[in-house]
Amino acid sequence: MSVEVSGIGFDDPVLLASGILGSTGASLNRALRSGAGGVVTKSIGPRERTGHPGPNVFVDDSEEYALNAVGLSNPSDAFTDEVEKVEGPTVVSVFGGTADEFADVAGTFAPYADAFELNVSCPHAEGYGVDIGADAELTRDVTAAVDEAVDAPVWVKMTPDVTDVTEIGVAAQEGGADAVVATNTLSAMAIDVESGRPILGNAHGGMSGSALKPVAVRCVYDLYDALDIPIVGVGGVSSAEDALEYMLAGARAVEVGTAVWDGVEVLGEIADGIETYKKDNDLSHDELVGRAHELTPKEDGDGGEG
């Protein structure tokens, strides 16, 4: 089931997404033992942050979506002690307010990271995240700064909160990105009708879960046509079918986040389901990735390399 993304080998194409079980080396290793081919840490920044006041997580009664506004809380450099303990492929998620801050944080974690995921897409931290990732020039500059600072592959995590995700993806590629991750959470909010107040302490947050998947799959599909670098799909993956949808759209691997709340064993179950599908349909991994483009020819040209 092994798969390669930007030169990094993973035991299978199912990775733990950033922010879920990513706070300690022990929890990241637990994800690996449960079937994840690799793990992405929580996002680490240039200085300690306590994040937003609670409530900072809300799960809708339908369980179709969750909202979070954690606010990029993190221990900064002290997290090296935890990353050092991880016993498998490790993608370190980093953020900053400037290109130099991104590069400095990545440089600190360079001895421990197999790759870096640039969080330029968090929708609920003013001055960070989507404030950068919605701007093509800033995305290009941040990516280039990190690419120059470290030898490891650089992945750029995209925001769906833009008019044209391919413009941002192309900017990341021009900046030296080795892969893009599509997508981060979608800016959203919920209001309690009894009190009349927003449910989250920060009022608005990021929506994850199955309700996000159609948006993120569309982003992957469009990015596949526009880019020459690999794509990692994320958003609402809770089954092998969800993961396969991303792969058919053009993702080489997927990340799983919200679904892990119901049991970390879902990581291995998804990986096994992908492998069964490939065997049943006599498909290699390369043949699976982007297959929807081959089966639905486009009038305006060929599908991308992905």
Rank of each mutant, 00 (worst) to 15 (best):
D242T: 06
D100C: 09
V156W: 03
S238D: 14
V92T: 09
S23T: 08
T183G: 00
P89V: 04
V105W: 05
P160W: 05
L244M: 04
V146C: 05
E4L: 05
D147H: 11
L267F: 12
S73M: 11
S18W: 03
D286E: 15
A99D: 10
S6K: 04
S2N: 12
G273K: 01
T163Y: 15
Y65I: 02
A149V: 00
V91D: 07
S43K: 02
L244W: 03
V215L: 15
V91F: 15
S208L: 00
C219F: 13
R140L: 00
A253G: 08
R33W: 14
N68V: 00
A36P: 13
E82Y: 00
L118D: 00
A292S: 07
Y112S: 06
K85D: 05
W155H: 07
V120W: 01
P111S: 14
G236P: 01
D282L: 05
P160A: 09
S23Q: 08
F10N: 10
R30M: 14
A31R: 05
Y65Q: 01
K279F: 08
G235W: 02
G263R: 09
V156L: 00
N29T: 15
S6W: 06
E287S: 14
A182Y: 09
D228V: 05
H285N: 10
T183N: 02
G169N: 01
G22N: 00
D141F: 06
L28I: 07
G235R: 02
D282N: 13
T296D: 10
V86N: 05
A243N: 05
V70G: 01
R47K: 15
R140C: 09
G97F: 14
T183D: 04
G54L: 11
V57Q: 01
A36H: 11
D12I: 09
T143Q: 02
